[in-house]
Amino acid sequence: ITFYEDRAFQGRSYETTTDCPNLQPYFSRCNSIRVESGCWMLYERPNYQGQQYLLRRGEYPDYQQWMGLSDSIRSC
């Protein structure tokens, strides 16, 4: 899974293949995501807390595409 700070896969990015309890050191906001394979559970707060979103393989050019309430993703 790759997270992008800006919409349409622009700006600083961070890629991971494992669970991350705290994504804050890698980016300040998340406006687009690419899921290369599988399913990922994302959380608005660190340590798997807050609103959660299940994303399947695909491209999400805007946080509203995954029904996000904000551009805050802090763990996965």
Results as ranks from 00 to 15, higher is better:
2 T>N: 11
2 T>M: 05
2 T>P: 01
2 T>W: 04
3 F>Q: 00
3 F>Y: 00
3 F>N: 01
3 F>G: 00
3 F>W: 01
4 Y>L: 00
4 Y>S: 01
4 Y>H: 02
5 E>C: 01
5 E>K: 04
5 E>L: 03
5 E>Q: 07
6 D>Y: 12
6 D>W: 03
6 D>E: 09
6 D>L: 12
7 R>N: 13
7 R>Q: 11
7 R>V: 13
7 R>T: 03
8 A>N: 15
8 A>P: 03
8 A>K: 15
8 A>L: 11
8 A>C: 14
8 A>Y: 06
8 A>G: 13
9 F>H: 02
9 F>L: 15
9 F>E: 02
9 F>R: 01
10 Q>C: 13
10 Q>K: 15
10 Q>S: 07
11 G>S: 05
11 G>D: 02
11 G>R: 04
12 R>P: 08
12 R>G: 12
12 R>I: 12
12 R>W: 12
12 R>H: 10
13 S>W: 11
13 S>G: 09
13 S>N: 12
13 S>Q: 13
13 S>F: 04
13 S>C: 08
13 S>T: 08
13 S>V: 13
14 Y>S: 08
14 Y>K: 04
14 Y>C: 03
14 Y>M: 15
14 Y>G: 02
14 Y>V: 03
15 E>H: 14
15 E>T: 12
16 T>L: 12
16 T>D: 03
16 T>N: 05
16 T>S: 09
16 T>F: 14
16 T>W: 11
16 T>A: 14
16 T>V: 12
17 T>D: 05
17 T>E: 13
17 T>P: 10
18 T>P: 01
18 T>E: 10
18 T>R: 04
18 T>Q: 03
19 D>Q: 09
19 D>E: 07
19 D>C: 08
20 C>H: 14
20 C>T: 12
20 C>P: 01
20 C>W: 06
21 P>W: 08
21 P>L: 09
21 P>C: 05
21 P>E: 07
21 P>I: 12
22 N>C: 05
22 N>W: 04
22 N>V: 12
23 L>W: 01
23 L>S: 02
23 L>C: 15
23 L>V: 11
23 L>A: 04
24 Q>E: 15
24 Q>C: 05
24 Q>M: 03
24 Q>N: 08
24 Q>D: 15
25 P>F: 07
25 P>L: 12
25 P>E: 14
26 Y>V: 13
26 Y>D: 04
26 Y>F: 12
27 F>Q: 08
27 F>G: 04
27 F>E: 01
27 F>S: 06
27 F>N: 03
27 F>K: 01
28 S>N: 13
28 S>K: 15
29 R>G: 09
29 R>V: 10
29 R>L: 12
29 R>E: 10
29 R>M: 14
29 R>F: 15
30 C>A: 14
30 C>L: 03
30 C>P: 07
30 C>M: 04
30 C>G: 02
31 N>T: 08
31 N>C: 15
31 N>R: 10
31 N>E: 15
32 S>I: 01
32 S>E: 00
32 S>N: 01
32 S>A: 06
32 S>Y: 02
32 S>M: 00
32 S>F: 00
32 S>G: 02
33 I>Y: 00
33 I>M: 15
33 I>F: 08
33 I>L: 14
33 I>V: 06
33 I>Q: 01
33 I>E: 01
33 I>T: 02
34 R>K: 07
34 R>T: 13
34 R>D: 02
34 R>W: 08
34 R>H: 04
34 R>S: 05
34 R>C: 06
34 R>P: 01
35 V>W: 00
35 V>L: 09
35 V>T: 07
36 E>I: 04
36 E>C: 03
36 E>P: 12
36 E>L: 07
36 E>S: 09
36 E>W: 11
36 E>V: 11
37 S>T: 12
37 S>W: 06
37 S>L: 03
37 S>Q: 05
37 S>K: 14
38 G>A: 10
38 G>L: 04
38 G>Y: 06
38 G>E: 10
38 G>I: 04
39 C>M: 09
39 C>K: 08
39 C>R: 07
39 C>Q: 06
39 C>E: 08
40 W>G: 02
40 W>V: 14
40 W>T: 02
41 M>A: 07
41 M>D: 05
41 M>N: 05
41 M>I: 03
41 M>E: 13
42 L>R: 00
42 L>F: 11
42 L>M: 13
42 L>C: 09
42 L>E: 00
43 Y>L: 00
43 Y>R: 00
44 E>P: 03
44 E>Y: 04
45 R>Y: 15
45 R>I: 04
45 R>S: 05
45 R>G: 14
45 R>W: 09
45 R>H: 08
47 N>E: 13
47 N>W: 07
47 N>L: 10
47 N>M: 08
47 N>V: 04
48 Y>D: 01
48 Y>L: 04
48 Y>G: 06
49 Q>T: 12
49 Q>P: 01
49 Q>D: 09
49 Q>W: 03
49 Q>Y: 10
50 G>L: 00
50 G>E: 02
51 Q>G: 08
51 Q>D: 08
51 Q>A: 10
52 Q>K: 14
52 Q>G: 07
52 Q>C: 05
52 Q>H: 14
53 Y>C: 06
53 Y>A: 05
53 Y>T: 05
53 Y>N: 07
53 Y>S: 12
53 Y>K: 09
53 Y>F: 10
53 Y>Q: 06
53 Y>L: 10
54 L>N: 09
54 L>F: 06
55 L>H: 00
55 L>T: 03
55 L>E: 01
55 L>V: 08
56 R>W: 09
56 R>T: 14
56 R>E: 11
56 R>A: 10
56 R>C: 14
57 R>P: 10
57 R>C: 15
57 R>V: 12
58 G>K: 04
58 G>E: 03
58 G>V: 00
58 G>I: 02
59 E>L: 07
59 E>W: 03
59 E>R: 04
61 P>I: 05
61 P>M: 11
61 P>Q: 08
61 P>Y: 10
62 D>W: 13
62 D>T: 08
62 D>P: 02
63 Y>D: 07
63 Y>Q: 05
63 Y>I: 09
63 Y>W: 05
63 Y>H: 03
64 Q>I: 09
64 Q>F: 06
64 Q>Y: 04
65 Q>Y: 12
65 Q>C: 11
65 Q>E: 13
65 Q>V: 09
65 Q>R: 09
66 W>H: 10
66 W>D: 05
66 W>M: 06
66 W>C: 04
66 W>A: 13
66 W>P: 11
67 M>W: 13
67 M>P: 08
67 M>R: 11
67 M>V: 11
67 M>C: 04
68 G>T: 14
68 G>W: 11
68 G>K: 12
68 G>A: 11
69 L>S: 04
69 L>N: 08
69 L>K: 06
69 L>C: 14
69 L>P: 07
69 L>W: 14
69 L>G: 09
69 L>H: 08
69 L>M: 04
69 L>Y: 11
70 S>A: 12
70 S>E: 09
70 S>D: 07
71 D>P: 05
71 D>L: 12
71 D>G: 09
71 D>Y: 09
71 D>Q: 05
72 S>M: 12
72 S>I: 11
72 S>K: 13
72 S>R: 11
73 I>Y: 03
73 I>W: 15
73 I>N: 01
73 I>E: 01
73 I>P: 14
73 I>H: 01
73 I>D: 00
73 I>R: 01
74 R>G: 12
74 R>F: 08
74 R>D: 15
74 R>Q: 11
74 R>N: 15
75 S>R: 02
75 S>N: 00
75 S>E: 01
76 C>S: 13
76 C>R: 00
76 C>V: 13
